[in-house]
Amino acid sequence: MNLLMNPWLFALILSLRVLNATALEYENLPDIKEGIVSINLQEPERTVGYTVGDVLTRHITLEIKKPYQLIEESLPIIGYERRYKGQLIGIDLSNIKHIKKEDGDAVMHDLTFSYQIFTNNVVVKNGALPAEYLRIINTKTKEIVRYRVPSFDFAISPLSIFGAVKIENNMSGYRGPLLLDNSNEKQHFKLLLGILAISLIGLLYMLGKHAWLPKMGGPFAKSYRQILKSANTPEGLQNAVSSMHASLNKTAGFSLFNGNLNQLFEKKPAFQQIESEIHQFFGLSRQVFFEPNAKHALGNAPLQWLAQFCRRCRDCERGLITDKQIANKA
């Protein structure tokens, strides 16, 4: 009578009875058959280095095929103290998130369990995020089965260490391998890789024939490709010389002749470095286009010389032959 008069006491007694009944139910329920529930666990990153007060979070994704259905009341309760062999384990569930999504013939449950450590020791001791039993019901047969979410073992470190610790004597499997500090080597490696990459790009820039780097698509780069493709015939030579004329004119911004080279040098001083070769080129052009009897000093393979000359012009165009070199030469 007195008990019934005190509603708080009555509620407490009732809830304890329910919990006891639940625990008993788990033990008696059969395990769910394989293939009905699939689980994906995302555990905390490390298994060591936790101390009192730390929060460990595990993400659990359950996919339960219909007609089975999770009994949501079987999800663990925040704050419920866990015991192992009658002893409090000191790890409590501090937060829970549950998102449910229908996915065709299955239901997806995204569960996030956060546990907080409330235990400490003078030496490292083992701990575990406890296994959780969930009840699942077959909505057709009304059969209730259980599903076990596995536990997660880890080590709980003391807040402070007393005395000298020789770590080699305590090679705990929870600690993971001891790694040497290689950050300096990594930095050097990255630096050397960078230098190598720049050198390769530079080499490619100097030797490359293509137009996919800055300043690579200049007139002389195009002429160079055309000269390399030119047939070793009078027509091929004419086309090659003509292409070089076009490139020189485009670079100068006006029609370039032997008589107005100074204007080019004023505008593009780098080309002064190859003045004698430009004169030779005009000598070749004279022979090819205007005066077949004229002689040039380029031997019997003018096309090869032209390709070489074009590369020199391309170097000037790309600034590989600098004005500074000219100043030093002067």
Binding site: A246, F257, F289
Partner: peptide
């Protein structure tokens, strides 16, 4: 004109 007309 000399600057504008190319040869060849």
């Amino acid at each position: 004109i000399i600057n504008a007309v190319a040869a060849p």
